[in-house]
Structure formats: C-alpha cells, structure tokens
Design a protein around this nucleic acid. Structure first.
Lengths: 336, 336
DNA sequence: TTGAAAGCGCTAACAT
DNA sequence: ATGTTAGCGCTTTCAA
C-alpha cells in the first residue's frame, strides 16, 4: 500500500526539475510561484510535467530562509481542551488556513510559562501569534524582544501598543443579570472571580444596583467545572438561598448545575441560571443554559486580519455579546 | 511598554555574534548547540555574552534547511473543538512539547480534504504527523508520496505498513453493555453507527447474545450531540421502550440525555445509559455519565514515541478501555 | 580548541 | 521570455 522500499532516494529539488525540463532554475520558481516573471505557456507545461514526474515538492525551509516568512501563526492558550478555547482555536485555525497560514498551538497551563511559550513560538519564527492569556510584565518584555507581531485575545483591558480583542463582558454580565431581574428575581448570586473590579462582577453589581436591588451572595470560583461545582455547593448552604445566579462561564455553570441537581433543586423552577460564553456544551446541559454569547467567530476573523495586516491599529476592540435564551433562566415561569 | 521604535534593525545573526565575540562562526554554533566540538570555557562565556548583548536568536529556518528537521509535528483531526479530539490534542501537545516538538493542528471537516491536509502538512516538512481520521486510498497514497512518517490514531482497524493506535472499542462496548445486563437490564438499545460490523455495535450485540438476550433497538447516529439527541428522541417513540442504552460516544450521550429529559424520563430510574470515551464533559452531565474510558494520555505518549522512533514497528496496537461508573447507569437501583 | 568554507534549496535582481 | 547568480543563516567537515 504505502511505498516503502519504493523510493527512499533524495527528494527532488528545484534544480532537478530545471534539468529535467531543460530550463533554468529561475523558470521553475516563476512557474511554481506564478512568480514575478511571466513564463511561456509551453515552458510552464514542461515544468509542471517535470514536477509531476519527479514528485517535486518545494522545500519550505529554504523558502522561509530566503523570504523570511514561515506562513505560520502561533496560538497560546491556557488549555486547548477547554471548550471555550477549543472553539476559539478551531475558529482561528479555519480563518488562518483560509489565508494560507498554519497554526501552531501552545498550551501554557502555568502563567509562569507564558514568556517561555512566547519565546518558543518566536524562535520558530511564526509570522505572528495570538495570545489568549493575560500577560504580565515579563511576558510583554519577551514579546517585545521577540519582535513578533501579536494580537491579544480574550482580554478585559487594553494593553498599550498591542492590538487587543475581547468581548464586552461587563455589558454581557449586565445584560444577563438584567434578564434575570426582568423575570422577577430579586436575589441574584454571582459565581466568578472574587475581585470586585473584575468586569463580570461589576456588570452583575451594576445591573442589580440599577434595579435598586441588594447584592446577592458571591461565590468565588476559578474557570473550571470543578470550581463551579464547589461554588454551587456553597450557594446551597446559604440560609437565604438566591432565586437566581449569574455565572461567569459556561464551564463553571455546568458545575453549578450539578451541585444544584445534587442538592435536589428543580431547575429552573427553584433557581435560575444565566452564564457567559456561549460555548457549544452550554446547549446540551440540563436544563440548557441561557448564556451570553461571545462572538468567537467574528473575533477570530478580526484577530487574523489585524495580525497579518502590516499596520493594523493597535487599539483595544471590545465585541458586543448577545443573550441567548434557553431553559436555565426559567423564562416564562417567573414572568413578573 | 513594548519596544516599538526601539530597534527595528535587522536581527543579529550568528556572524554578528562571532564578530562581536571575536571568534569564528563555527564556535558560535558549537556553543549554542553544545555542538559537536568542545569549546573552551572562557570562549564560551564570551560567546554567550555576545549573544545576550546582541539579542541573538538562532534562525530556525536556516537550521532546518541545513539539518533537515523542523522539530514540528502535525496533527490532523476532524474537529479540534470536539471535546474528545480537543483532549487528545492537548495530550499530544504536552508530550510533543516535552520532547521539543511543536504541534501544527489541522482540521479536516470534510473527509475529502484529508489528502489535502496531509499534503499541506508535508509541504511544511513536519517531522511526522498524527492522523486521527479514517484514511481512504487517496489519503494513503498522499501520505506515501509525502514520505512523512505518520502514526494513525483513533482507528478501529490495522492499516498495513503504518503504526496504528486505537482503543479496543469492541471490548469497551461489551464491557459497558455487560455492566448494564448485570444490573438487570434486559432490553438494551444501541446508539451509534448503523453499520453492523462496526466494533462498538458488535460489542453491544455480542454482550447481549452472550447473556441470551435479544437485541434491543438500534438508533443510528453520527458522532455529534445533535445526532445523539435525534437518536434519543427516536428511542422515545418506541412502544416497547428499552430500559437501558449503550451510546457510542459521550457527545452523543449528552444529546440522548437531553432527549430523555425532555421526554420527561427520570434518569437513571426510567432508563440507564452507558457511553464511551471518558471525555471530561461526561463527568458533568446530569446524571453524570457512566462511561467506558479510552486511555487518551497513554495513547498520546505511545503515539509520540512511535512517531519519533526511527524504526518503530508498524503494528496496530489496541488499548484496553476501563469502565468508569457514575450515575447514569443507575448502579444500585436495579441491582438484580 | 578554533577557523575556513562548502553547501542546504530557494528567490529575485540582473543580465540576456 | 529565460538564464545566471548571489546570497538567506546555519552546520559541520576538514585543516590548522
């Protein structure tokens, strides 16, 4: 099946093709690249023939060395198996491939490793990199030294001098919480980062304040299902149980959901949930999560554009989120 | 923050370093690579100093051109955002990175595109590729022509001449179904491929036969949540509803679960489910899925080894699965 | 222990 | 329209 002992000989090079076709190496280049110079149709045909016969394949490394571009892009994520980043990665790979770029995926589980990851990617001379991790000073320095163009993804704040993309999570959270309020909830808990200045928490707080409602309980959680689960459990132990929860990510929400189920709550009758991300798994949780979706596809397209565009503005662009109503918020039940 | 107008000058090359350190280019190589020749400690120090001062970074393309290795590996999957492949990809990236390889991820949503994907990866001269898609003749041919080493992942059958890895899905399915039977189920449905020779379906069939039970209904489904959902719905319409279902993948099972919930069934009391894969999301479904887990991590390690080992045997290795009991099978409820 | 130099395969400016 | 040729930056053999 597979040509094993068939042809272990040295791969054909451009010179071989030239010789075989009876032309100069330059013409082979011109033909292959629809190059800077025109080639007569007949000659082109001969060259293409030679290419086929010899099984010639251009050597990417040589080309890279010469022209200085690898047509490779890097992507740094905290965890490529996290559904949100997996989805983002896939979108990025799609748009990159459509523009002729390959995508090098790097996981940096530990924040400490980011600078290392940046250097790794830079040393492979990617033409640019997407970084979907929060950067520290050292990382910024590494990036600067590398001289590699980068666009930052999944950020909540502008980073000076770097094109940065994020969703408007503050507005998203407000939107989600407002929806809950509109449906009669008066005690809305928050699951997410405990930092009060974090944008989702701020959105939650402001939505409540705007409605003249008191703040519900806060259950701190990291962005994992496990941590969401724990947060959900802690909410269960409260004497005054909230009637609704805003959860910072779908992953966490899935954990919260489990805790509530185990607690014997009936959803969304006993407690409503709205989360954030719009990742695919949110649709198939039980009940299906009402979630504030981030326009991942759009962000991916924009990110690519800004990465490959030589002089893209280095602004911070925040994308608008949209509320996707499903069952977990109990729409229709508590209509006020 | 980021050195912008700071130093847009040409990157330092090995020659610059040599000049600065007052040594020959060769010595720089020897130093950088702990090269084939020894270097005097004092000289090495001078060189390292020059490297630091000049901010020298080796040019990967030049090195590749010279030595013929990119230290890059490719991974072809049908959908990198599918949790199972995302998990596999992450594991692969981890082990690859640990061995100094970078991973190029390529999605081929359409089976027709596989040969193209293989060629793309080959033209980037990856040192090898993981292919987690079923290959057709044309793909095998493309792979053969490319001359790139490959190991096949997630396969159910041996492929002549290629190192191939899979889980023993037949045994896994039997295992899962047997568990169901042991807990008193007499009508066990199957959700998955309709092809009767497919290994999971065979496992299901054989487990039933071995117990002297009749075959339950078959609901054909592709490997998506949506398709699992549809299959679950179709099961619901049966007059003689099964008391248990074996589902071919966790993704499908999540869909089945939703259909059952919507149908008002109480799980696992009304109907039990065992699925297959052991992907992370199975743990957080409701009820948590009892699932037959594939040893993804082990397979990833083995795959890397066999890919980079120059003369690894091209056998087909099947990994054993393990049953992970959670709630969806109703263990303890129906104890016979 | 160090230096000189020959390429690796390709592109593109410059000749023809 | 086609041919010649000088590197791109690096590794490594060979010589010193």
């Amino acid at each position: 099946m597979v040509p094993d002992g068939e042809a272990p000989k040295r791969r054909a090079t451009r010179a071989d093709v030239a010789r075989y076709a009876g032309v100069s190496p330059a013409v082979v280049s011109y033909t292959v690249n629809a190059g800077p110079r025109p080639v007569a149709a007949a000659t082109r045909a001969r060259v293409q023939d030679a290419i086929r016969v010899l099984g010639y394949r251009p050597n990417a490394a040589a080309r890279t060395l010469k022209v200085g571009s690898t047509t490779m892009l890097g992507l740094i994520v905290p965890d490529s198996s996290n559904p949100f980043f997996a989805q983002f990665g896939h979108a990025l790979e799609d748009v990159a491939a459509a523009s002729g770029y390959a995508l090098l995926v790097v996981n940096v589980s530990n924040t400490k490793d980011l600078a290392l990851g940046i250097r790794r990617l830079a040393s492979r001379q990617v033409d640019g990199m997407f970084i979907a991790v929060k950067l520290g000073m050292a990382d910024l320095a590494a990036l600067g030294e590398s001289g590699t163009p980068a666009v930052l993804l999944n950020q909540s704040d502008a980073v000076s001098g770097l094109p940065t993309i994020g969703s408007d999570l503050y507005e998203g959270a407000r939107q989600g919480v407002r929806h809950l309020i509109e449906h009669g909830h008066r005690t809305v808990a928050f699951v997410g980062e405990s930092d009060p200045s974090e944008e989702r928490q701020r959105g939650w707080r402001d939505a409540l304040a705007a409605a003249g409602l008191e703040l519900g309980p806060i259950a701190a959680a990291e962005f994992t299902r496990e941590s969401g689960y724990a947060a959900g459990q802690s909410l269960l132990t409260l004497e005054q149980r909230p009637t609704a929860v805003f959860v910072s990510s779908d992953q966490q929400a899935v954990g919260v959901l489990r805790a509530f189920h185990e607690g014997g709550l009936s959803l969304p009758a006993d407690i409503a949930i709205v989360s954030l991300d719009g990742s695919p798994e949110a649709e198939y949780s039980w009940p299906a999560l009402t979630t504030v979706v981030q326009p991942v596809r759009d962000m991916a397209m924009d990110a690519l554009e800004r990465l490959v565009q030589p002089n893209a503005p280095t602004r911070f662009v925040q994308y608008a989120t949209t509320l996707l109503i499903r069952q977990s918020c109990g729409c229709g039940h508590l209509q006020s």
